[in-house]
Design a protein around this nucleic acid. Structure first.
Lengths: 196, 196
DNA sequence: GAGATTTGCAACGCAAGCGTTGGATATGCT
DNA sequence: AGCATATCCAACGCTTGCGTTGCAAATCTC
């Protein structure tokens, strides 16, 4: 069997993403990352350094993807904002590991956020799309662009951050992914619609 | 010195809340909980069982508080909804540990949510306040009450769930607690105002 | 194809942290 | 006072999991 370092690294990182997303930094063991990948534990150390370095690497690589995630060029009205919110929601549904990594990063309160610069750039383009649409009077301007963009992401992400709260609040009439998505899009539309 | 079991238990639990909130289940050690409380580790085991039982106990006790947290009797209009959102935001600011416990609980994805019944009751009263206000035509009814209530909490909580995202999105014009609160209240008002 | 280099792994040393035990000190009961 | 019981803790055993080492197999170099 031919050497294939790149593939080995890829498999280890893929496995690390899954384990860290599922159990966090503290709950994950190097042993299990290696076993899941079907590769010896020692490879992790030679390729990625110790556990916290591996975690930082995984965060850096994967969370750039989250920031870049859903494309957003221009917003021509409240409906486009709602469509964006829906797309973000769908992205979370398709990539639960990345969402969880993002939340774990928030809880860990790291002094330095990995890849902060490039991620900031990605977010900046999203915010710019909102402010541009506001200046063109296409969507409501009574909430600052950065805040509006952030709150739209809040509406889409909260379902995944505290699923147990959703369950308890919808005890009498359970939320399905569809009803949640529908509510979210209506809310996004309202936030983006100018007040009369 | 007289025996004071109750006080000892209270101090241990207080310490456990702080440690679990700061480091999560995996990142917390029983040793440190005990040391922070100035009490021997063994007490934890006789009083609360093992680590995961202690964690469950802490969650059960503290998260009931979160659910009950901000009183909400009746909502007489969109401004009242905004005031409620602001109060929830303030509560998060004053009790960051409890917010973090809530988020950790969400990430752990426990099969059974501790104290689910009583917490559900608390949430039910919040949702009821929203649906009642909707039926009385005091606030917008185009988003189902439970979803609206849930999304209001999303707006207030997201800042604490992903502070790093807030920082990156506000890179050009940093958010302060005040601007965040202001944006949140405007958003809440918009969500609660009937469409024209 | 001999030697150097790289990739891989089983087995190990060692530290951290969980949970326990044996005994000391304080309180309650008679 | 004397016996029983409850509270407390220092010290310990033992498991888990981090990070390493020594060696084998595969690939590259000349």
């Amino acid at each position: 069997m031919a050497w294939n370092t790149a593939e080995t690294k890829r498999r280890l990182k893929e496995s690390a993403v899954a384990e860290f997303a599922a159990h966090g930094l503290g709950g994950t063991t190097m042993e299990r990352i290696a076993r899941r990948a079907g590769i010896n534990k020692e490879r992790l150390y030679t390729y990625f350094g110790d556990k916290s370095q591996l975690f930082a690497t995984v965060l850096a690589d994967e969370l750039n993807k989250v920031a870049a995630a859903v494309p957003l060029d221009s917003l021509d009205g409240p409906e486009a904002v709602a469509a964006y919110a829906g797309a973000v929601y769908d992205y979370h549904a398709e990539h639960p590991e990345l969402t969880r990594l993002l939340l774990w990063e928030g809880l860990l309160d790291l002094p330095e956020v990995p890849e902060e610069d490039s991620r900031t750039d990605y977010y900046r383009t999203k915010v710019a799309a909102f402010t541009r649409a506001q200046q063109a009077n296409l969507i409501s301007a009574d909430i600052p662009g950065a805040d509006l963009a952030f709150l739209i992401l809040a509406l889409a992400g909260w379902w995944y951050a505290v699923p147990q709260m959703s369950r308890m609040m919808h005890a009498d009439d359970p939320a399905t992914p569809d009803t949640a998505r529908e509510a979210l899009m209506r809310a996004a539309t309202k936030l983006a619609t100018p007040a009369v």
